[in-house]
Nucleic acid binder design. Structure first.
Lengths: 161, 161
DNA sequence: CAAAGATAATTGCAAATGCATATTATATTG
DNA sequence: CAATATAATATGCATTTGCAATTATCTTTG
């Protein structure tokens, strides 16, 4: 046996099979969010929206006037994908763009009234999925869960956003 | 004001802005998993893998010989996308397929030795991201977090898998 | 303060995705 | 038990995605 193989062995990294899929948090989170997003997609399609477009509206409904680069972080949508999603939202009159006063390379994005009402029509369905997800989970447990998520985001994020 | 408008108002559905992005669990989960998957993608690309291919290998490394339909649920990959991901894994010798004995429409998928060692080469990187994600989060809190995730999966899943 | 390096956003292009449908086989039912 | 419905997988095709390159602007540095 080669020395480095021995080293690797003694590092004792548990295998996925040992942890078990059902105990591996990233797996569970992907499963849950996969279902959540899929359930949403059906509703979105009927409104001419996609996940990137919905996420943009959702974020802007809370924090309006973001720079595109920051929106990309908040909405978890890759820059070029977002650029095209915004083109469509603009064409549909759901957002407007405005050059940044400080930096003429940058663009700020604002949600329009039509954009807000579009998101408001969608929200009950999103809230419904959210409620279903946390069905029978007590408030204290939810709060603890969210607190852990916030720590996790702090651990993985690259931007200070 | 129309009666149904009044009804909707009295339902008192909190808005996303009231909950706040930073307290909205689906948002946080998408942010965290978006980063996790993106971090992984770089590593995957260098090994000629994609997320669907990696997920297939990950699941098969734990539960071998699944039917394609079940693998699709476990791996959270849409059926036609999975079909093509498996084509590639097969071409690369990382899995093999075998017709099901009971049902001649169905196919079972098995991971090969090459597939296992491919996943094993990837695992340290996945485990590293996992560790980083839970950095400074005590074991009890992790365990509680996973327990909540398991309840949530029970709430949202459509299959009994 | 000019040159080189970084950054914001868009766009070309090849690859990936997912819906709808095709194909083959099994289950159900009148 | 023929006819019909349902199920498992694959594939055609239009759309979406994301990397890389581009354009325009800002920042840093010798």
């Amino acid at each position: 046996m080669r020395p480095d193989a021995l080293a690797a062995e003694s590092a004792a990294l548990p295998r996925l099979g040992e942890i078990g899929l059902a105990n591996f948090a990233p797996y569970l989170m992907n499963r849950i969010m996969g279902r959540y997003n899929e359930d949403l997609r059906e509703e979105l399609a009927s409104m001419g929206l996609t996940i990137p477009k919905m996420r943009s509206l959702a974020v802007l409904s809370v924090i309006d006037g973001l720079l595109i680069r920051d929106l990309s972080v908040y909405a978890v949508v890759e820059q070029s994908t977002l650029s095209r999603a915004l083109d469509q939202l603009l064409a549909d009159g759901l957002i407007r763009k405005s050059p940044d006063a400080e930096d003429s390379r940058a663009t700020r994005v604002f949600i329009t009234d039509a954009g807000r009402s579009s998101f408001e029509r969608l929200w009950p369905s999103m809230a419904g999925n959210y409620a279903k997800m946390f069905q029978d989970i007590p408030d204290v447990e939810r709060a603890q869960f969210v607190a852990t998520l916030q720590k996790m985001l702090g651990n993985v994020r690259r931007h200070d956003i």
